[in-house]
Nucleic acid binder design. Sequence first.
DNA 1: AGCGAAATGTGGCTTCTGTCCACATTGGAC
DNA 2: GTCCAATGTGGACAGAAGCCACATTTCGCT
Lengths: 211, 211
Amino acid sequence: MGARATEEPRGYHHGNLRRALLDAALALFAERGHHDFTLRELARVAGVTHNAPYRHFASKADVLAALRDEGLAKLAEAEHAALAAAGPSPRERVQALGESYVRFALEQPTLFRLVLSAPLEEGEANKARASESYRLLERTLEEARRAGAVRQDLSARELALASWAFVHGIATLLASGRLPATPAAVKRTVALLSTVFFEGAAHGAPPRTRA
Amino acid sequence: MGARATEEPRGYHHGNLRRALLDAALALFAERGHHDFTLRELARVAGVTHNAPYRHFASKADVLAALRDEGLAKLAEAEHAALAAAGPSPRERVQALGESYVRFALEQPTLFRLVLSAPLEEGEANKARASESYRLLERTLEEARRAGAVRQDLSARELALASWAFVHGIATLLASGRLPATPAAVKRTVALLSTVFFEGAAHGAPPRTRA
DNA sequence: AGCGAAATGTGGCTTCTGTCCACATTGGAC
DNA sequence: GTCCAATGTGGACAGAAGCCACATTTCGCT
């Protein structure tokens, strides 16, 4: 991955400072548990002066925004990958989406909090990406509904909302350390919630041919 | 010397500065959407010098911690009140708990985020209070389970966890502006999720009609 | 009462941060 | 090769956190 940019022999120009700064921020996120880094610290880690970052970001808030966008993109990517790897069963596909969401929250708790627990700004691109991730969920539930895997008296939109709340709830609780996050515990928790959700989501569905 | 809040000024420098500072912080929370206030600002609002707060709080983080504790206490209080006002039906009681949680998130979104979306520190009292609130939920679901209102193949602990995730999910999404928060929309969303959860939680419970 | 001690508030530092400025260096377009 | 926009540098300023010594007010104790 990224080279350790602590004290590299480099010329006047840093190869890709923007990338280095974002990486440094992510590294700090992982190291500490929160995202109140300092711009000057990022610059120090990247080996540039406290002012160089301003050639790539308008302000500190702008760095945060870039990180949010990046996180959102990573999440969407992970979701797509999960769907691609999932089998054809509608339930399995919905579950794959939820699991990738939770996994994201567990692997990068601070980033997850930054991206999805912070209040929405006027973030246009941000909102768009979030909508994209959400639309993926809605589409998947639409498929599940068409396949008769879930109750028909609720719209795909409603089911998507319900599942989102459910998954987001677990993810948030896990990412903030309010639920035990050992692999075994996580697996158990996810399985449990999945059971409850699908029972609730399936009940009322007219008996259908395909599963 | 009661623990009652917002006393009248007693006639010396500043009656109850600690209280005034916390109130100022809460007011700032409500005014802006975030909780990155400045200690000096609180002091200014309270009409004291930038250093007076240090007679009541060890640091800025300490103020945050106090606010978290306060928020947790308020939440627990609201939950108790909701339970007291709820009828005897187990389902109604569980629902009352969930609604009070969501209402808290909606009425004080910033405080809610501060209290329940932030990573847990070494907050001992904090954790204790959180556990208390959680224990209330667990106890209520225990009652529901004993009354046969929910499926028996899941423990009360499991059901509590599932419902917590569910409710926390909606609350977080609402508090961060990711779901429409108009009263009507909220009512609909809560009803929807409640339906899904209880269907899922009730399945396997005492016999009932099947379509 | 009164008087000393503990609380509480003040003003003045020091260090650090975000952001603005003018200037230096560089790589690439011509 | 020359010139320019992109990028990095160094300095400056306001504002904030937190420490210190000092000034007040209130209270405990006799």
